[in-house]
Amino acid sequence: MKIARIREADERCGWALVDADDGRVQRIRAPFSHWASRLAGDGIDALDLNTASIDLADVQLLAPVDPSARVFGVGLNYLTHLTRLGRKEAPPHTIAYLKPDSALVDPGGVIQYPAVTRQLDYEIELVAVVARRLTDEEDATECLLGYTIGNDVSARDAGKALGSLDLFTQKALDRTAPIGPWIATLDTFGGPGQPERDMTLRINGETRQHDNTRNMIFPLAELLNFVDARVALRPGDLLFTGSTCGVGLEDGRFLRPGDCIEAEIEGIGVLRNSVGPQRILPPRRRNGRLGIP
Rank of each mutant, 00 (worst) to 15 (best):
L104P: 02
T207Y: 10
V227R: 05
Q119G: 02
A63C: 05
G246I: 09
G146R: 09
E222K: 08
N273D: 00
P293K: 07
W182P: 00
E138Y: 03
G180N: 05
N215G: 00
L162K: 10
L165G: 04
N77H: 10
L49S: 00
L82P: 03
I292M: 14
I261C: 03
V153A: 10
P31N: 12
T117Q: 01
E250V: 03
L173T: 07
E266D: 15
D10C: 06
N204T: 04
A96D: 13
R272H: 04
M216L: 15
R289C: 05
Q170A: 15
I265R: 06
N212S: 14
T83C: 00
R156F: 11
F72E: 03
Q60G: 02
F72L: 03
I3T: 02
R208A: 11
L56N: 13
R38T: 06
L224I: 02
K2T: 11
N212D: 14
V59F: 11
G190E: 09
P293C: 05
P92C: 07
L104R: 07
A229V: 03
D211S: 15
R24F: 04
E222V: 08
M1K: 01
D198N: 07
E11D: 14
D66G: 01
L255C: 06
P192A: 00
A140I: 02
L85A: 10
V153N: 13
F32A: 01
A232G: 02
L82Y: 10
A46S: 15
A36C: 13
P107H: 02
G242Y: 05
L82H: 08
T200L: 11
L61W: 15
N77D: 06
N151M: 12
L165K: 11
A40L: 07
P257R: 06
Q194T: 11
R87T: 11
I54L: 15
S37I: 03
T135A: 15
T241Y: 09
I261Q: 09
G14K: 08
D211G: 04
G276M: 11
A158T: 02
R70D: 15
D211P: 04
D174N: 08
L79Q: 14
Y97R: 00
V127T: 14
T188K: 09
A263L: 04
A155T: 06
L134V: 00
T176R: 05
C13Y: 02
V270P: 01
V270D: 12
G252L: 07
G205R: 12
R7P: 00
G150E: 08
L104Y: 05
I28Y: 13
P114N: 04
G193W: 11
R284S: 14
A177E: 04
D237Q: 06
L82A: 09
Y97L: 02
G248D: 11
P192C: 03
E137F: 05
M1V: 06
R133A: 14
P67A: 13
T141E: 10
N151C: 05
I183W: 13
D22K: 10
D251Q: 06
K99L: 13
D211L: 01
R256P: 00
Q170E: 13
D106V: 06
T117W: 11
A161K: 14
T188C: 13
I280E: 15
A263K: 02
R202N: 03
L134Y: 05
G236C: 04
N225Y: 02
T176S: 15
A90S: 10
I203G: 01
I280N: 01
G205Y: 09
S102Y: 03
C260H: 14
I261G: 01
G276W: 11
I44L: 14
G109K: 05
